[in-house]
Design a protein around this nucleic acid. Sequence first.
DNA 1: TATCATTTTTACCGTTTGGTCAAATCTCTT
DNA 2: AAGAGATTTGACCAAACGGTAAAAATGATA
Lengths: 221, 221
Amino acid sequence: MSNSMTRVASTAPARAKTRIQQENEARILQAALEVFSEKGFHGATLDRIAGAADMSKPNLLYYFKSKEEIHIALLTDLLDIWLAPLREISPQGSPATEIGSYIRRKLESSREFPRESRLFANEILAGAPHIAGFLQTELKQLVDEKAAILQSWIDDGQLAPCDPRHLLFAIWSTTQHYADFSVQVRHVLGLVPGDVSYYDEAARMLETLFLGRLVAPGTEG
Amino acid sequence: MSNSMTRVASTAPARAKTRIQQENEARILQAALEVFSEKGFHGATLDRIAGAADMSKPNLLYYFKSKEEIHIALLTDLLDIWLAPLREISPQGSPATEIGSYIRRKLESSREFPRESRLFANEILAGAPHIAGFLQTELKQLVDEKAAILQSWIDDGQLAPCDPRHLLFAIWSTTQHYADFSVQVRHVLGLVPGDVSYYDEAARMLETLFLGRLVAPGTEG
DNA sequence: TATCATTTTTACCGTTTGGTCAAATCTCTT
DNA sequence: AAGAGATTTGACCAAACGGTAAAAATGATA
């Protein structure tokens, strides 16, 4: 949860951070994550964030120059969390093990970082104004790289013919759904607000879907 | 795209709608859909919506009492669009045909109504403050009903054992992803903003995923 | 064309919002 | 303990916001 955006420009001296500075920046980012992920960028107010950080608004603005700077700092930290599971896909493994563990990692990420996932979802829904560059460059590159691995498995006959990038989309959407749409999931399942017990069943569903066979063969007519 | 919220309370006389009234309400709702789906509720302003409807703000407020009333009107209209594909799932058909056509309907809905889909996504992400009741009652009921159909197919051995409701979640997430996360999809695929040519490939992917078998058998070790 | 209801506009209001500023307080070092 | 730098606070501001009121303009109807 370290902040890479407030860290300096190469020309500035970049003083070492005080104990208080570290603590308060962390508190602010945590509070802002809570508020931004719940209310969206425009729905979040500096007063609210400051309140959640148990801090006055001017004091908050002493550490971050603007509301947008906090938002960008959060997004930047987020991208590593988002990419990490994808990076681990290896050409050495088999489709079943690699796809299976990728799904587990992504699902675990949804369970562990639901607020970060919602922050990301909000940003994409808003047209990705702050991370368009990231999507076009780093993410696209990594996707192309991993898609090539999947493609080699398709060429081997280990994986059904399909556009590997769309396979990744399917994994992203199904796993992130449990964080981004958790309210809907809980209402439909009849669970109380805090309950996240659906993750076990979700994992089973996704394993069947991606690694097994959903519809029994011979009944397609 | 008719509006059911401004229509009357049972006690009020409910005058018939003027030609101008009908036209302007439609223009406002269309403009508001554009703005709300793009900016979210808090990011949208009455000035912007009025501008998009080519109308002054007070004039807009002559037709809708408040910003929230417009939002609720849009959401209410939306729910029918959202539910329609699910309603069509029939116990008469086979799993392959029913699930397949449900996916096609949902995907078509994403392509045809991307703004409505994003409006819905925004609402859920915000905690579903306006449609929590709908999710808990109408949607839950319909899901339970359709899940029972899927369950009967599981009992028949026509469908792999799984929680049918999570199967529905998987269908929702994968299909809606192409509307809600279209910006990300396009950036990753290297497409220009307006391009929706990915839907064909998406349909193929989802058919393979839900109706076929992704990972070749015998290689799971 | 006169009349009345509907529609549109102009001017305005109170509140909220992101952000500033300078003074006051605190913390750390010497 | 004193001084310097870091931190915190309270008072404040301009702009944007959702919304109102009343007059002006338009449309329908007879």
